[in-house]
């Protein structure tokens, strides 16, 4: 069936076309030309503490859900939370499968199983979640990102897996 394959979806071009059709001003995508910053991996995964930051609007039952309007707060979700207590809210992606199985946007079960098997040294005490699709890059840069970086250091996290939607 390889002849039926298509290249990856051109989300940027399709979003621009959609905004134009809707009569909106052109969406300004984040671009970062040049060489990105780089931290060396000090220890292999099996001797590291792994954290996760996911932007799919995930929260635990009992936590306040995210708003859908430039919400720059985050939630800490203990990594021993029951999978059945996890929820997702968002405006920008189809939540049907996330509501059936949160692991499609928040891979808590595979990560627990890999940690149990020793492939990961240990999981951080909490994973962090926030909203994606925040229009204000300034607020992400000045509020959300520094707060998350601080929490990762407070929790002595060695490596972070980033899971957008």
């Amino acid at each position: 069936m390889s002849d039926h394959r298509q290249p990856p979806v051109d989300y940027i071009d399709r979003t621009l076309a959609q905004y134009e059709a809707l009569g909106y001003p052109a969406y300004s995508w984040a671009t970062n030309p040049g060489t990105p910053p780089w931290a060396d991996v000090a220890e292999p995964l099996e001797r590291s503490r792994l954290g996760v930051i996911a932007t799919g609007g995930i929260y635990r039952v009992g936590q306040t859900a995210f708003t859908h309007h430039d919400d720059t707060t985050f939630r800490a979700i203990a990594t021993d939370t029951a999978t059945s207590d996890l929820r997702a809210t968002h405006f920008a992606y189809d939540l049907t499968d996330a509501h059936r199985d949160i692991n499609v946007v928040f891979p808590i079960d595979p990560l627990r199983s890999l940690a149990d098997d020793g492939a990961i040294g240990e999981l951080a005490p909490s994973f962090f979640t926030c909203m994606g699709g925040i229009y204000s890059q300034r607020r992400v840069r000045d509020e959300l990102a520094p707060a998350l970086v601080q929490r990762c250091h407070d929790d002595h996290i060695d490596l972070v897996l980033l899971v957008p939607v």
Binding site: A39, I53, V140, V149
Partner: peptide, 19 residues
Amino acid sequence: MGLIARQLEESGIPTVTMT
């Protein structure tokens, strides 16, 4: 998510971004 990845790396924490 790119901003978060960059600030983590600048602070010394390596990241992998799934997409």
